[in-house]
């Protein structure tokens, strides 16, 4: 009897566990909203505005996916995650996708069992110092106290960089970007290091941004992109092609202003396939035919999203650089819609 109870329990629990992994898309549709993990607040990338509405470059990736599924960019529940909690939140199913300037690395992709669905920002790790420190290069930072967010790739890059250059430093581990800002401004650390984009974003929030400078060294490659769990490729495809739709739309000149007009039909068959007036790409994803049109109408194309959140006309003022379209000498490149 003892054994049979044990086996019976084993069988039942196996069935329960098996049933728990239905398709993510069905879960999201049943719930009526997308659960998306973002940062705890990096201006321009993901931060709540004065009314508590999340906005930013990464947030718009979440909104694009919600638009593709529901045609409604507001059908998103945002979950703020720290560098330490983000992967657990995604792996446990608390969030459906993570769009939190997360670096695509081998071990996260393979060992942590995540699927990176593209790159929405090509970044690199930089250093920010107060100007009156008189430092012009990262190699002069011997003995400096450096604020760093724990649980990030920047932590490992920093250790490697200082080791390779045979200089010492004192790491001050920090949980969130807001905490780093406070410590850095109080002078508890000489240097703040993280992705160059986030440095620019934080500097824009300082009272006197001109007193601080970002050193010229970029010590790592940080391709940042959205990611999902392994094992549900259909869901991964939706996130991947939502991002690609934004990129392709910019390349083809489809904007939030003209998408409605172009969806009636145009001379360019790729535009027609993208906007759903030709072919059945939406159906193949398990979505409506106008999924990509909804993304572009409600969120905008990649260039628009970049421009309104972090572009040169915003306080953050990041140039396109590596993040320009491939035709303009950048790395932003989407596989074709066909």
């Amino acid at each position: 009897m003892y054994k049979s109870v044990l086996f019976g329990v084993l069988t039942v629990s196996g069935l329960v566990a098996g049933a728990a992994t239905a398709a993510t898309l069905d879960d999201v549709k049943a719930r009526g909203s997308l659960n998306c993990g973002v940062t705890t607040g990096v201006p321009g990338f993901a931060a709540p505005d004065a009314n508590g509405v999340w906005e930013g470059f990464d947030v718009d990736v979440c909104r694009a996916v919600a638009s593709a599924i529901f045609g409604d960019p507001t059908a998103v529940n945002f979950t703020p995650t720290t560098g330490q909690t983000r992967f657990t939140a995604l792996a446990s199913g608390e969030i459906d996708m993570l769009a939190r300037n997360t670096t695509w690395t081998f071990s996260r992709d393979v060992d942590l069992k995540f699927e990176f669905t593209g790159v929405n920002y090509y970044d690199g790790q930089g250093f920010m110092v107060p100007k009156d420190l008189g430092v012009s290069s990262a190699t002069e930072l011997d003995g400096a106290t450096i604020c760093i967010q724990t649980g990030t790739t920047t932590e490992l890059n920093l250790a490697d960089y200082f080791r390779a250059n045979k200089i010492s430093y004192e790491p001050v581990p920090i949980e969130t970007s807001a905490e780093a800002r406070q410590q850095f401004l109080a002078g508890a650390c000489d240097v703040y290091t993280t992705d160059a984009s986030a440095l620019a974003a934080i500097r824009a929030t300082f009272e006197t941004p001109g007193d601080f400078t970002v050193l010229p060294e970029i010590i790592s490659k940080e391709p940042l992109g959205p990611l999902v769990r392994h094992g549900d490729n259909g869901w991964g495809d939706i996130v991947r092609w939502s991002l690609n739709a934004m990129i392709t739309a910019e390349e083809l000149g489809v904007t939030s202003a003209n998408a409605g007009e172009l969806s009636g039909g145009s001379d360019n068959p790729e535009i027609n396939r993208l906007l759903g007036s030709e072919g059945n790409l939406g159906e193949q994803l398990g979505l409506s035919a106008d999924w990509a049109k909804n993304i572009i109408m409600s969120v905008g194309n990649y260039g628009e999203v970049f421009g309104t959140n972090i572009g040169e006309n915003t306080p953050i003022g990041i140039a396109r650089g590596l993040n320009a379209q491939w035709k303009d000498g950048g790395l932003i490149y989407s596989p074709p819609f066909r």
Partner: peptide, 24 residues
């Protein structure tokens, strides 16, 4: 006792199954 052992066995087996499902 049987109930307790069964509960414990369920917890462990559930963990193992879910880890296997995640490929870990």
């Amino acid at each position: 006792l049987i109930g307790f052992v069964a509960l414990f066995a369920w917890l462990i087996s559930n963990t193992i199954t879910n880890l296997a499902l995640l490929g870990k």
